[in-house]
């Protein structure tokens, strides 16, 4: 069945047009499909979202090996790229298994096998998103998030603060620490408020980013081992004659002239409690 050159070109053009239409459809659909809601947290070791959706082949091996009902594959109604694994912290947070079976199960490296210590995972970052809603911030004792935290005392600590409302009580407020929080979401799961006031946010949402031109002098100095801008000059206070000031030591003192009179004054001053505070 021979076809003319004309027919061949027309047929090819038809197919190419159809394909282009389908391609346009898929590309624009994928843009929508890959917007992930903030409540969906990826398993431990997941690559950055952009890389994750090219690496994850949606096989569900991580879900099968998760010993808890935490991970699941997204279905069409989850607004997460269909077939990819995620968990919702409020429903069930990650239990942070020591052997990280989900990462071991991943055949493609979408969950990075270089993560061997679950305490170093960065699934997200817990933030107290509503200090007004948090009863600890209102002066009630709670600390549930602190108590459930797998890295208690590191990822979440309780800080004592002054209760400005009553003027005489203390607040015991939970504080999340960037360096240790793995984003497991147990705190969000456990939060006793009707709507959690502590929430795990995906890293890209939780983290800001400083422009590169902001250099922290003290960090740069430490890296370089010396001041980078100008040589360090010992700081001098503009003090009246005969006085000296030691910030971390004795405070404001007279320039010592060894005499029995000064010693006597010193010992006298040491009875003064205000003087004592200044010295510490």
């Amino acid at each position: 069945m021979a076809i003319s050159r004309r027919e061949f070109f027309i047929n090819s053009a038809k197919l190419a047009t159809t394909s282009a239409l389908i391609a346009t459809g898929i590309v624009s659909y994928s843009k929508y499909a890959y917007s992930i809601p903030a409540s969906a947290i990826r398993p431990p070791g997941a690559l950055a979202e952009k890389d994750f959706i090219s690496a994850c082949i949606r096989c569900g091996l991580c879900v099968n090996d998760c010993p808890f009902p935490t991970l699941s594959l997204a279905t069409e109604k989850d607004r997460v790229a269909i077939g990819t694994p995620f968990f919702t912290a409020r429903t069930a947070g990650c239990e942070m298994c020591d052997d990280i079976p989900c990462v071991k199960a991943c055949p493609t490296g979408a969950l990075d096998k270089s993560l061997t210590d679950i305490n170093k995972a960065k699934m997200g970052l817990a933030r107290i998103v509503d200090t007004k809603g948090c009863i600890a911030y209102q002066g009630l004792r709670c600390e549930v998030c602190f108590n459930i935290c797998p890295l208690q005392g590191k990822a979440i600590t309780v800080e004592m603060r002054h209760n400005d409302r009553s003027g005489k009580h203390a607040l015991f407020v939970p504080v999340v620490h960037y360096d240790h929080c793995t984003g497991c979401g147990k705190c969000e799961e456990a939060c006793i408020m009707e709507e959690a006031v502590i929430k795990v946010l995906p890293m890209q949402l939780a983290m800001g980013k400083r422009q590169d031109h902001y250099k922290l002098g003290w960090e740069e100095k430490q890296k370089a081992g010396r001041s980078l801008v100008s040589p360090d000059i010992e700081h001098k206070y503009n003090l009246p004659e005969g006085k000296q000031y030691d910030l971390q030591g004795k405070g404001l003192t007279d320039i010592k002239v060894e005499s029995s009179l000064d010693n006597a004054l010193d010992s006298l001053n040491s009875f003064n409690p205000l003087f004592d505070i200044k010295r510490k």
Binding site: I22, A23, I26, I82
Partner: peptide, 21 residues
């Protein structure tokens, strides 16, 4: 053509786009 499109789609979107459908 769709096979080609599925690969092109992956390349253009940087994701396994065909697996969405």
């Amino acid at each position: 053509w769709i096979l080609a499109v599925s690969m092109l789609g992956a390349w253009l979107t940087g994701s396994i786009a065909w697996e969405l459908v």
